[in-house]
Amino acid sequence: MIAKKVLLVGNFGVGKTSLIRRFVLNQFSEDYISTIGVRVSSKIVSYENQEIKLLIWDVAGTSEDEKIPKAYFLGAKAAMYVFDLSREETYLKLDEYVGNVKELSGLKEITIVGNKKDLLTEDELLAVKNKVSLDIDLITSAKENENVENAFLKLAANSLK
C-alpha cells in the first residue's frame, strides 16, 4: 500500500471538513466548527487495482487577506480547492486563489470542487457555472453525499501522477 498526502484548501465555511467527514466517516452535521490550523484524516481507497492510503490534510479556511503557511503544502501529492456555490466571495477570484495554491504546493493540477449544491436551484447553479473563471471538476453536496466519493477518487488519481 502507498500513502499519499493530499490537501483540501479554500475559504472558511465552504465545507472542507464536511466533505472529509462525509467521505471518511459517512457523517454530516449542520454544526459549523471552524478548523484551526490543520486536521489530518486518513482513508484507504482502491484506485486502478491499487490500495492508496489518503492522508487528507484539512487546512484551516482563509479569508482573502490571509496566507496559508507554506509548510502545510510540503510533500503534498494532490490538492482540492473547495468553494461554496452559494457564496460568491468564495469563487469570484478563483483563478487567483488556485494560482496561489499551485505556487505554494508546486502542483500543476488542482481539483476544483463547488460544494453545497443542495442550497441552489438548477438555474442558480447554471448562473454560478457561468461566473466561475476556471473549469469546475466536480459539483458536490456533503449534506446529500453527492459526488463526494468521486471528488476524493479524483484526488487519489491526481496523487499518482
Rank of each mutant, 00 (worst) to 15 (best):
V132H: 13
Y47D: 06
R39H: 14
L138M: 09
D118L: 06
L126R: 15
V59H: 05
K16E: 01
F28D: 11
N115L: 05
D135T: 15
G114S: 05
K77H: 13
L55T: 02
M80V: 15
V14T: 12
A156S: 04
L120Q: 05
V113P: 02
P69T: 09
M1H: 11
K108R: 13
K102S: 04
G37V: 10
E64P: 00
I33Y: 12
E89S: 09
A71Y: 07
Y91S: 06
D135M: 14
R39V: 12
A60D: 02
A71G: 03
L94K: 00
A79V: 12
P69H: 04
L125G: 13
L19M: 03
V6L: 11
G114P: 03
A76I: 03
I112N: 04
F83Y: 11
K70A: 15
A79H: 09
F73P: 08
E122H: 11
T17Q: 09
T140W: 00
V148A: 03
T62V: 05
S159L: 06
I110M: 07
K161D: 14
G15Q: 02
V132A: 14
G75Q: 08
V14K: 10
K117R: 06
I44Y: 12
M1P: 15
A151E: 02
S34I: 12
K70T: 14
V148S: 05
T17N: 09
F152P: 02
G114I: 03
E146M: 00
G13F: 06
K116T: 01
N147D: 02
I139S: 04
V101H: 07
K16Y: 02
I44P: 08
Y81N: 07
L155A: 05
T111W: 01
V128E: 11
L92M: 11
L126W: 14
K53Y: 05
F73G: 03
E96K: 10
L155K: 07
K16A: 00
V128I: 13
D65E: 08
V45H: 09
F23L: 02
E103M: 12
D65F: 13
S141P: 04
R21C: 00
F28M: 10
T121I: 08
N49A: 14
K129N: 13
N130D: 15
I44Q: 13
K129Y: 10
L55H: 05
L126S: 15
V82G: 08
Y91L: 11
